[in-house]
Design a protein around this nucleic acid. Structure first.
Length: 422
RNA sequence: GUGGGCGUAGCUCAGCUGGUAGAGCACCCGGUUGUGGUCCGGGAUGUCGCGGGUUCAAGCCCCGUCGCUCACCCCA
């Protein structure tokens, strides 16, 4: 025996029958996205490393210790994308989309990579669908993006998720808050590791799960008390749109997002039942990102939803994704070498006629082949042996009723017979 | 990076105070010649994660190692 391979540590994989759920989940999540006019943007999985350090932010864990970075043969530093927004922004700028119709509305789906220690719901390669609406700084658009994420999760069938929102305000609001927050934190006794994190981004302390830190942060100054009049008005407007849309939300002034580019409206969808990782999606507005990447001064907003976690959430709620038209319409069972030749040709023609058809490969016995047809959920089976060849008629069995009917041995006759019955 | 748990058939696991491996599911074949789902009978499958040690004897004990997993951290 040669040594067997195993997948790289911490990646998520979906194989049958789970692969079908994965595929279906993406489709369901995307329905509300498409119906709101968002169009696909398909981007590279690796980008210039600098795009992420500058875009996502050097103070984030994502950039400082979770990137898969490598050099190509010419010595360029490339990184497997840890998130989607930076790449979208890059592409928008590079191809001048920002000079066209605004807002630009795009969606993406695919794998992302972060070199973390894996655990329940956290993988090194994981899948997201996300949208970005760039070029309109309008609270109604913030509400739309949140609404779509909400609809997407609902459309999957999820019920037990909650939405948390907050506003990080504009630059002025944030710098005032930061000063006060730093003052407050300087009175807390912290270990070196926490001090390092605070130096990079004091907000992170709000996210600490240690009891003593939570207690100490109880009376910390909150951003909502530092919002400028403009930011305040904007935030109120977003909330009123959400109420108008019938979206239940909870305000969480202590919410922290892991990426540096967020400004203004931020939000997170949480689901308990996934283990320690409770966020199944999140996003927010980013005012300075485009400019930081060499583009124009356009603001944008978007979200990312974790497909892996959404599937775990479905499990937790005991929901099975309903597959439309699953299983085979027909299963062919050839019983002799001669009938096999006919079967192979017949199989192709039936498939071309739009039916889902498979046949028994490997010269199995009739009984075994029937069993296999049953396992695959075939609605009809067709037995083709030497007798059928000479009489030019085949036996088609309805697997649900057990009824067997003779049909003329011709692809079009069989096809129309099956189509009539299903 | 830090800590806990676990590694026995494809899957889920059992294996008592050490005596050279088992169940259920799944899979394959058959139950009188060519028709599935139930039932019955039969069958294949493991270097018991790997390496070393203790012992007459180790899946069970000891050491090491690798892997998986959960949690911290962080986040989708």
């Amino acid at each position: 025996m040669v040594e067997k391979f195993s997948a790289p540590k911490g990646v998520s994989e979906y194989f049958p029958p789970r692969g079908r759920d994965f595929e279906t989940a993406i489709e369901k999540l995307l329905e509300p996205v498409r119906s709101a006019g968002y169009q696909l943007i398909e981007l590279p999985i690796f980008e210039d490393t600098e795009l992420f350090t500058r875009g996502v932010g050097g103070s984030t864990d994502v950039v400082t210790k979770e990137m898969y970075t490598f050099q190509d043969r010419a010595g360029r530093s490339l990184t497997l994308r840890p998130e989607g927004t930076a790449g979208v922004a890059r592409s928008v700028i590079e191809h001048g989309l920002e000079r066209g119709q605004l807002p630009i509305k795009v969606f993406y789906k695919g794998p992302f990579f972060r070199a973390e220690r894996p655990q329940a719901g956290r993988y090194r390669q994981f899948f997201q669908v996300g949208i970005e609406a760039i070029g309109a700084d309008d609270p109604a658009l913030d509400a739309e993006v949140i609404y779509i994420a909400h609809r997407a999760l609902q459309n999957l069938g999820l019920k037990n998720f909650t939405l948390k929102i907050s506003s990080l305000g504009d630059g002025e609001s944030r710098s005032k808050h930061r000063i006060e927050l730093m003052k407050f934190i300087s009175h807390i006794d912290l270990d070196q590791e926490s001090l390092d994190r605070v130096a990079k981004n004091p907000l992170r302390l709000f996210d600490d799960k240690r009891k003593e830190i939570i207690a100490a942060m109880e009376s910390a100054p909150l951003i909502r008390d530092f919002l400028s009049p403009d930011s305040q008005e904007n935030y109120e407007s977003v909330k009123s749109h959400l109420r108008n849309l019938g979206i239940a939300y909870e305000e969480d002034p202590r919410m922290v997002r892991g990426l540096d580019y967020y400004t203004g409206t931020t939000f997170e969808f949480l689901h308990h039942g996934l283990g320690a990782q409770s966020a199944i999606g999140g996003g927010g507005r980013y005012d300075g990102l485009l400019q930081a990447l060499g583009g124009s001064q356009l603001s944008g907003i978007g979200f990312g939803l974790g497909i892996d976690r959404a599937l775990l959430a479905l499990d937790a709620e005991g929901i099975t994704l309903e597959q439309e038209r699953s299983g085979l319409d027909l299963y062919l069972i050839p019983l002799s070498p001669a009938s096999k030749i006919t079967s192979v040709a017949l199989l192709a023609k039936l498939r071309e006629s739009g039916l889902r058809v498979d046949m028994s490969y490997g010269d199995r016995g009739l009984k075994g082949a029937m069993k296999s047809a049953d396992k695959q959920g075939a609605k009809f089976t067709l037995v083709l042996g030497d007798d059928e060849l000479s009489s030019e008629s085949v036996h088609v069995k309805n697997m649900a009723s057990g009824e067997v009917v003779s049909v003329k041995l011709s692809a079009s006759e069989i096809s129309s017979f099956i189509k009539k019955m299903i």
